[in-house]
Amino acid sequence: DEIHIHFNGVTIEFRGLTEEAKKALEEAIKRGASEEELKELARRLIK
């Protein structure tokens, strides 16, 4: 299970995320999180 985020022309790929983690990332994107914020969020979620 993986998710691809297209962000300002950059694709960020995450693997092994739970549904909750995906929802958290989607919410962050909707509120306009920066690419760095998304990566940091993903790091926290994957652990």
Rank of each mutant, 00 (worst) to 15 (best):
K39Q: 12
G16V: 03
G16D: 15
G32L: 05
E26L: 15
F14M: 09
A42Q: 03
K23G: 09
E40P: 00
T18Q: 06
R44F: 07
N8M: 03
T18N: 08
L38Q: 00
F14Q: 03
K22V: 14
I5V: 08
I46Q: 07
N8P: 08
I12T: 01
L38A: 01
T18R: 04
E26V: 13
L45M: 13
I29A: 04
G16P: 05
S34H: 06
E36F: 05
E40N: 06
F14L: 15
A24Q: 12
N8K: 02
K30S: 13
H4F: 06
A21F: 08
K30E: 12
E19C: 05
E36G: 10
T11F: 05
E40A: 09
E20I: 10
F14P: 01
R43C: 11
E36D: 12
E13V: 14
I29G: 03
F7W: 04
E26W: 14
E37N: 04
I5C: 12
K39D: 04
G32E: 06
E19Y: 04
E36I: 07
L25D: 00
A24Y: 08
E37L: 09
R43S: 13
I3K: 03
E2F: 15
H6Q: 05
K30I: 10
E19D: 08
H6R: 03
E27G: 07
R15L: 14
R15Y: 15
A28D: 02
I3L: 13
R43I: 14
R15I: 15
E20G: 10
E19P: 09
E20Q: 10
G16L: 03
T18E: 09
K39C: 15
R31W: 10
K22S: 05
A21S: 12
R15V: 15
V10K: 11
N8H: 06
E20Y: 06
A33M: 12
L38N: 00
K47P: 13
A24R: 09
N8R: 01
I46P: 05
L38D: 00
I46N: 12
L17F: 07
A24G: 07
L41P: 00
E40I: 06
R15T: 15
R43F: 08
H4S: 06
T11E: 10
E27M: 10
A28G: 04
E20S: 09
L41S: 00
E27W: 05
E40C: 04
E36M: 08
R31Q: 09
L38E: 00
L45Q: 03
L25R: 00
I3E: 04
T18F: 03
R44Q: 13
G32P: 03
T11G: 01
R43W: 06
G9N: 03
F7S: 04
R31L: 11
R44L: 11
E2H: 15
G9C: 05
H6W: 03
R31S: 12
K23Y: 12
E20H: 09
H6G: 02
E2K: 14
K23F: 11
H6L: 02
E19N: 07
I29M: 07
K22L: 13
I5H: 02
I12M: 01
E27P: 01
E19R: 04
L41V: 05
E20A: 12
K39H: 11
I3C: 07
A24D: 09
L17V: 06
L41Y: 02
K23V: 12
G32D: 06
I5E: 01
